[in-house]
Design a protein around this nucleic acid. Structure first.
Lengths: 143, 143
DNA sequence: TTGATCTCCGATTCTTTTAGTCGGATATAA
DNA sequence: TTATATCCGACTAAAAGAATCGGAGATCAA
């Protein structure tokens, strides 16, 4: 399925939550979890991952929590997806994948890879700022 | 994960196989299965589904098999994906989905839906003919 | 008309991925 | 020092994906 995981959804909601608040506001896991009805433990892991990858900054101890590490317009959708789900692969077979038994005869891999590239580029152009403002008009065409 | 299933890969390979041959050539499941090393039973189901949805035409009995129902330039990637995987949904929550506990507070759904729309439009622009000729240059941008 | 070769189709099992849980450690403000 | 945070690995449960099985129906050729 060509679908984002719930984890990515949660990550985007959390980032959005922070983006709507002032820089000085420190959001903690419990706040976000209760606001959006996301399992606490699961959200905690997601935020840790985002922090580890430098998308958000963590502040330990009581009154601690998370803030965005960059401006909303500097965080892209592609970046968030990659942080949570790993490299974006619409096509299955990676370069040098030995498990694919169709490798040699596969006629569709190369063109699909191009399509994948287009979609990745697209996702990397969409920022959190764009999402916050519902300002998605960028095109995605096929000359 | 934002990834196509193996079934879709198999479907595309099979369609591609037929597209490369003359209209009079009837491809049977075994041929394709052996050529690309795809489990026979699985491929059979996929082809049945494609036939049921009018993408290919089945010919029963010995010397039977499948041929494309339309020209390669009339079959789109989006169409194939939908036939095999069902409606394309990059975002999880469907309109009227009651199971999503974030429904009311979710701030990201609407913008993500726009993004989804862009990608679907893109996939619907790509034809089998395009894939065969590796002629994918259509863009996918974000104004 | 009979047998071989196809498609057809539902039901089932196995595997992988995703989702969510649990237990315990570390940091820090009050 | 205590309450409240993040941190982190290991684990379990649920869902989706991949593959298999068994048998029915069509059709061509001998």
């Amino acid at each position: 399925m060509l679908k984002l995981t719930k984890k990515t959804d949660y990550a985007l909601m959390a980032i959005n939550y922070m983006a709507y608040r002032k820089d000085s506001f420190i959001a903690n896991t419990r706040n976000i979890s209760e606001t959006y009805n996301i399992p606490l433990e699961l959200l905690a892991k997601i935020l840790q991952k985002l922090a580890k990858n430098g998308l958000i900054v963590s502040q330990n101890g009581p009154k601690g929590g998370y803030t965005l590490a960059k401006e909303p317009r500097q965080i892209t959708l592609g970046e968030v997806i990659r942080t949570i789900e790993g490299p974006i692969q619409i096509v299955r077979c990676i370069e040098g994948d030995t498990t694919c038994s169709q490798t040699e005869l596969c006629t569709i891999r190369s063109p699909l890879r191009k399509i994948e590239g287009k979609i990745i580029t697209f996702l990397d152009q969409i920022t959190i700022d764009t999402i916050c403002n519902e300002n998605i008009e960028k095109e995605l065409t096929v000359n």
